[in-house]
Design a protein around this nucleic acid. Sequence first.
RNA 1: GUGGGCGUAGCUCAGGUGGUUAGAGCGCCAGGUUGUGGCCCUGGAGGUCGCCGGUUCAAGUCCGGUCGCUCACCCCA
Length: 436
Amino acid sequence: MSEAASVARLPGFRDFPPEALADRERIFEAWRRVSRRYGFVEYDGPPLESLDLYIRKSGEEIVGQLYEFTDKGDRQVALRPEMTPSLARILAERSRALPKPIRWFSIPQLFRYERQQRGRLREHFQWNVDVVGEADTGADAEVLAVGLDGLRALGLGAEDIVARVSDRLLLTALLEAEDVPPGSHPAVFQVIDKLDRGGAEGAGARLRDDAGMAASAADRLLDLIQEGSVERVRSMYGDRPVVAGRLEAMTAYLSDLDALGLGDFVQFDLGIVRGLAYYTGIVFEIFDRERSLRAICGGGRYDRLLELVGGEPLPAVGFGMGDVVLAELLEEKGLRREYRASIDAFVIAASPKEHHLALEVAAALRARGHDVSYALRSHTVRKQFKMAASAGAVAAIVLGPREVEEGMVGVRDMRSGEERSVALADLRAGRGLADG
RNA sequence: GUGGGCGUAGCUCAGGUGGUUAGAGCGCCAGGUUGUGGCCCUGGAGGUCGCCGGUUCAAGUCCGGUCGCUCACCCCA
């Protein structure tokens, strides 16, 4: 152990032995299946990017936690902390040639250098889904629908999770209505973001002190965040054209989601802000209803990012959903699937004489697409049956001298224990196994 | 980066006030005769008690440090 300690896993990184990989793959499969169901195609990019890609694009927060270093060619590089900048770069090069809207998804492994804690490691896999080239809220709704359906595919329902949606432009318009100068908006966002993590006390004071808001305005804002509804915002600020316009967008967005059958999963909530600097419209986060975990998913509209990276000015909306928090939620909800090894058949040679025949039978079955195993050296039949059981074999094919002489083999159903005699020729031809 | 909790076999854990060869269950390996698994029985391997140092005649047990895990803060993919 002490010897091993010097070459131990790096903190915040995971190994994936078969059981863990099975959990991961199950999640990935759900993500891919749902992405394709909505007509999205998969892409990927390099895990290592130029540091420059993240500076100024993602905001200070993320840059401070980059896994970065100088490579042997004296280049400043960073392991990707998020996928969106890479996507923006990729599209900057080829978006002009692509039919819009572009529907792409990816499952990159992302990295960040920070102390790990529950739901946050230094590495994770994140499902990214983006629609690029469509400014209408229809795209916003589509993206959130994909995310929610991905979670549904894993067994989570509206009683388990909720998407809280907000709009940065709406929030900004409300601040303007309250005469909060643009320079103070980030400070207000900061306070709102913190509200969600139990920082309700002192929020009013911070809005006044840090953001310079009038006491009455601060109270109105906090009240709206806690008891907000589209109707309430409209009744208070609906006479402002910008507010009215954003409320119209929000209404269209929510009704799209409703039409998609996801109304129960969605909740208007001005308390959602999102940390990344590049969001420019509707933003959302998906949480577990019990709020015992951090956000499972976060995303929103980022209409200016592509041109920031030198591409064609295209509107875009997308989200990222990490595998770590999601796996914790699935575990909590009892939705994790137990890992079980499984093969179609295990070929047993009753005596060493049948060993080569066992290999031939296995080869024939494998050629037909079956998953087949057998003992790598001579063992007692008893032992081989145990091996078959622990390999998760659906069937055990017993090759015994007596039967083989008559061209027959025994095929035993490992679950029921029933054994029947099958002609060797039939087995080789793909007949005789349950699903053959 | 800051603070709290924890660190004994692969896993889950026992090991009053320091005292001979550190234990259990599960798992793993090998057997339980002549060709049949899942139960059961027998045997076995596996731990420098995270690491380093200190106190002591004697430390898994006390003290300090360190690393790791974990929770919270910071912050947030």
